[in-house]
Amino acid sequence: MSNRTMKRYAPIFLLPTMVAFTIGFIAPFILGVYLSFCEFTTVTDAKFVGIKNYIRFWTDPSDVFLHSLWFTALFTIVTVLLINVIGFAVALALTKKIRGTNLFRTVFFMPNLIGGLVLGYIWQLLLNGILYNFQRNLKFSEVYGFIGLVILMCWQQIGYMMIIYISGIQNIPGELIEAAKIDGATPKQILKNVTIPMVMPSITICTFLTLTNSFKLFDQNLALTDGDPSKMSEMLALNIYNTFYGRNGWEGVGQAKAVIFFLMVAAIALIQNYLTRSKEVQQ
């Protein structure tokens, strides 16, 4: 087909996707931003109040938005590091010629197939079972909750990141490694100067995925600790949910927080993407 016919028919081909995208994303997004400036009980019946919603929660003593922000930030840093380092290490090990690599890959990947809520409840049982010996449980303090969430998140995500790293490592041309070996490079040097630069695209994807996943974590948080004790293990997404549904008259505030949350996630993701992209090398 010539270029001109392509252009002529472009709207027809774009239309279905655009309609779906508008219904599924653009419309709710605009409505959501609008609602953040409103007071309402049901979303169809909103009253415009200006930026009040963006101010109210900072000074409310029972609102833990700031605490949630720090809790989430710390959680994100810890899990991004752990998941990627361990995921990469496992991927390295499983691209070596050892028996049963396929079995191991499958086993490590499996946790990712289970839904977050189910995982949360299963891990709650497991961890409480251990803590029971000390007459404690997960909801005793936010430190337990934090560690529990980190363990759960690592267990779920490492396998997934491992698969991405494995494909990255397998795509490195054999002659590069061979040449490095002939030049007398030690395994350490090969890892640092050949493997890591060559899998940089995978690292970009994996850090992006883990970063946004951790920052937006909801199901696992809800199932494992539900923000207990005293909302101290409440992460941002759960905090927003609880503000919207848990406090009458605060629906708009929840919406305002969600807008702030969106801006934060977008900013972090863009910065991260820029930083890791700039380190990628051409083959």
Partner: peptide, 20 residues
Amino acid sequence: PSENWKNGVGSALLEYAQGT
């Protein structure tokens, strides 16, 4: 006054109970 009030009291009760 609100669900939030109940939650505040509940959390404080629990922390008192567990000694934290």
